[in-house]
């Protein structure tokens, strides 16, 4: 008993010293060792070049090596959870798409609270969803699609990547904004979805950026209908936005965000925000991002937080009204 008590004290003392030490370190000069940026998706995927570029920027600004750590799994929630549970000491950061941040899982428990356990530092990029149709589908514009879908309710097959995912969400947002009824057809990988779109097996599909659809767009087997954002994308200068097409509520974007664990020191948020925003707005970096298939879009921490809040509210509303459902 006595020994146990002694052990407990020893443990407490260690924790206290550890906390003091880390506090002291912070008070001195952050960063004094390598920083880890967790990416909750597979290496080689869409987030890979984005994260590596931002990592280079942080490294350049603070003179410490930045390691990109890919922790894929469960649609980004595994990696996000690692950061949510990490010490807010400035040495563990997160770069992710909306998936683990704007998250209302259907009946599944998340080990972290996407609303409170992560702090936003800045938005990194914006990649609006592109709505495309098969070359064999009669509609050539968003309006023609809406007219067709209204004449044939529930008959338009919309390819999505997994029910309950963000591409399904973008399709539901489209339905809501246009007052149509589409049938979601879930796909596991992007390859077969594009193949089926080209073949006309499915009628329409949404995807982040033009990259996956580019080949089909070139030979006419896929038609770009509309960009689901507020600005046109560089690769498709002739494709209008949903705002131009008259459906401003149909905005849906896959963005990238730099986040940190909760209780992250505000002065570090400020430091990181300033450095990363300055780096990303360099002309050469902006060009680089266009090659990655998205556009640099930076923000203040408050704007970033508001973006997540806004999208979570939209999502919660759709789920609560039973519009966005998996069954």
């Amino acid at each position: 008993m006595k020994k146990q008590l002694a052990n407990t004290f020893a443990a407490m003392a260690t924790v206290a010293i550890g906390a003091l030490a880390s506090f002291g370190a912070q008070a001195q000069e952050w960063p004094e060792r390598a920083i880890t940026v967790v990416v909750p998706f597979a290496a080689g995927g869409g987030a890979d070049p984005v994260a590596r570029t931002v990592a280079e920027g942080i490294q350049e600004a603070f003179g410490q090596p930045v390691v990109v750590d890919f922790r894929p799994g469960a649609n980004g929630t595994i990696g996000a959870n690692i950061v949510a549970q990490a010490e807010p000491d400035g040495y563990t950061l997160l770069i992710t798409s909306p998936a683990p941040l704007v998250n209302v899982k259907f009946g599944q428990k998340l080990p972290y609270d996407p609303d409170g356990d992560l702090v936003s530092i800045t938005q990194i990029a914006d990649a609006p969803y592109l709505l495309t149709a098969s070359g064999k589908f009669p509609a050539n514009t968003l309006q023609e699609l809406v007219d067709y879908a209204k004449a044939h309710p529930g008959e338009v097959n919309a390819g999505v990547s997994g029910l309950g995912g963000l591409s399904h969400l973008s399709t539901v947002i489209l339905q809501e904004a246009t007052g149509t009824k589409l049938t979601p057809i879930p796909y596991d990988g992007v390859g077969e979805r594009i193949a089926d779109l080209m073949a006309g097996t499915i009628d329409i599909s949404t995807g982040i950026g033009a990259s996956g659809f580019q080949a089909g767009i070139q030979d006419g087997s896929i038609k770009p209908l509309v960009v689901m954002g507020d600005t046109r994308v560089p690769e498709l200068p002739d494709t209008p936005t949903v705002i131009e097409a008259g459906y401003p509520n149909a905005i849906s974007s896959g963005w990238y965000m730099l986040s940190a664990p909760q209780d992250f020191p505000p002065e570090l948020v400020k430091k990181l925000n300033e450095a990363v925003v300055a780096y990303l707005n360099r002309a050469d970096i902006k060009d680089k991002f266009i090659k990655f298939g998205n556009m640099v879009k930076t923000s203040t921490p408050e704007e970033a937080e508001a973006l997540i809040q806004r999208e979570t509210t939209v999502l919660k509303d759709l789920v609560d009204r039973g519009v966005f459902t998996v069954q």
């Binding site: 597979a42 080689g44 995927g45 890979d48 992007v190 390859g191 193949a195 080209m198």
Partner: peptide, 15 residues
Amino acid sequence: TLGIPGSATMAIVLG
């Protein structure tokens, strides 16, 4: 020729 990746590896090649 179609820009369709058949596997995760081919998706990286496309990338």
